[in-house]
């Protein structure tokens, strides 16, 4: 949209319904259209439900088993939240140490890269042996899944402060700690938030994969059990709930971004949207 047409869209009385149509109505219609096509395809090709259940069938299962799904969701969400918070704290502290000291970087970074390069799913059985069965395994999985993007973005952010901005505090006699607080950390926030946005959507995924192998509770466990017993509509119901959790965490991250860095170029004017 050109600047002139954007301005016109804001100015005219028709602008509000038009915005509502494009930002809300069209995605909803697209979603409903997709589900209808899916429903029609299942009936048209007479697909058995153990192969591909119709959306209506998944919906019925969700209504029937809502309490069970909610219980499993709570368990998965707990693992996701606890694991994510642990990963966030570790990545910020470690990121600050790496950014502050080249020696720390040389000692630690190579291990982190090796750790990141190891396929997480492959080591899942080992985690079961080391940590045991239950919530703690899922939490560790979430930490492993979410830690690296936040660490890399924290290091990048802390290192990418404008060198001329650093002169400002230096010229005022600011200490290293004051410079970190006044310049480096706020400068790094967009990068840190970007890392959080990537990681926060990986958190439910990490919890579910942890539950695949090392838990007898949670949506991941429910999913793998349902597939094993060919209760595919139940498995789909679990997938839908995991997806909803993923979408909610994404919007949580979006909100966090708006609150944490309202001054950043990417956020200016978004409050008016």
């Amino acid at each position: 949209m050109s600047q002139a047409s954007a301005a016109a869209a804001i100015a005219t009385p028709e602008a509000a319904p038009r915005r509502l149509r494009s930002s809300f109505l069209l995605p909803v219609l697209s979603g409903i259209g997709g589900l209808l096509l899916w429903e029609l395809a299942v009936h048209a090709f007479a697909l058995p439900s153990y192969l591909l259940p119709a959306p209506s069938e998944v919906m019925v299962v969700m209504v029937e088993k809502w309490r069970l799904l909610l219980d499993q969701l709570q368990y998965t969400a707990l693992a996701a939240v606890v694991g994510f918070v642990i990963a966030l704290v570790i990545s910020i502290v470690l990121g600050a140490l790496i950014a502050a000291s080249p020696a720390v970087e040389r000692v630690i970074y190579v291990w982190l890269v090796v750790f990141h390069a190891i396929p997480k799913v492959v080591v899942a059985p080992l985690l079961l042996v080391w940590i045991g069965f239950g919530l703690q395994s899922s939490i560790i999985f979430v930490v492993v899944f979410t830690f690296f993007p936040m660490l890399v973005n924290t290091v990048t952010g802390l290192r990418s402060a404008d060198p001329e901005l650093l002169l400002v505090t230096r010229s005022m006699g600011g200490t290293t700690w004051q410079t970190l607080r006044a310049i480096r950390l706020p400068s790094a926030m967009p990068s840190i938030i970007a890392g959080i946005k990537i990681s926060i959507t990986l958190a439910p995924l990490g919890a579910v994969i942890g539950e695949f192998v090392a838990s007898n509770k949670g949506l991941g466990h429910m999913l793998i059990q349902s597939v094993g017993s060919l209760e595919v509509p139940t498995a789909f119901a679990a997938v839908v709930v995991v997806s909803i959790l993923g979408i909610l965490t994404w919007y949580l991250a979006e909100w966090l971004e708006r609150v944490a860095i309202p001054w950043h170029a990417s956020q200016r004017g978004r409050a008016a949207e």
Binding site: E164, V168, G173, A182, M189, W263, H264
Partner: peptide, 27 residues
């Protein structure tokens, strides 16, 4: 010492008054 640089080097995360107050806070 007060220094004015070629670029204004204001901190986007602080409002105008807080930018001006920065040296007082640091000192």
């Amino acid at each position: 010492i007060g220094v004015v640089f070629q670029r204004d080097l204001l901190l986007d995360w602080r409002n105008v008054l807080d930018n001006v107050l920065l040296p007082a806070q640091l000192q």
